[in-house]
Design a protein around this nucleic acid. Sequence first.
DNA 1: GCACAAAGTCAAGCTTACTTTACAAAAAGA
DNA 2: TCTTTTTGTAAAGTAAGCTTGACTTTGTGC
Lengths: 65, 65
Amino acid sequence: MKNRLKVLRAERNYTQAKLAELLDVSRQTINAIEKGKFDPSLPLAFKAARLFNLKIEDIFEDEEY
Amino acid sequence: MKNRLKVLRAERNYTQAKLAELLDVSRQTINAIEKGKFDPSLPLAFKAARLFNLKIEDIFEDEEY
DNA sequence: GCACAAAGTCAAGCTTACTTTACAAAAAGA
DNA sequence: TCTTTTTGTAAAGTAAGCTTGACTTTGTGC
C-alpha cells in the first residue's frame, strides 16, 4: 500500500517524530509505514485522514487491483 | 468503530458467508467485524469499499472524536 | 570537519486481526 | 413441528501492527 505521508509531512514541516506525536504512535511506526514495511491499522488511517483533513483514499492507495 | 456492513449485505442479499468469500476472509471475521469485536485491517476496508463501490468513510465510521 | 537533528533499522515483546474447527442459538421455510 | 440455513460464539494458533530501547546512517548548519 502506497501512501503520501512523507509529502503531507513535508508540506507542513513535520518531522516523523512530530507526526508520530500528533497521531499518538511511535516514531518507528511512522517510519515503517512511510517505508512500506506495513500498513497502518484502520483507526490509525482515520486519525491521519482527520489530521490532514483528507479522505483515507487521498492518503493511502490500495494497490490490489 | 461502527460499520454498515450488515445493511449493505442486506441490500444485496448476501449472507455473512457470501460476503466473507467475496472479501477473501473467514465468515467469523465478517461476523466479528459486524459485531464490533474488532476493526478490519486497512486492506480489508479497501476491499469492502471496492466491493460496494463506496468510500471507506461511507462504510466505517470512526468514533474517536 | 564537527555537531546535532532527522531518518533508518533491529530485536524482543505485547496486542490485535484473522484463521480453523467446532458447536449452539436463532431464523426461515416447508 | 422438523429441517435447513444463517448467525453467534469460543478456543487455540498464526500473522501483522505497534511498542520501547538502542544503535547507525544521512542530512544540515555552522
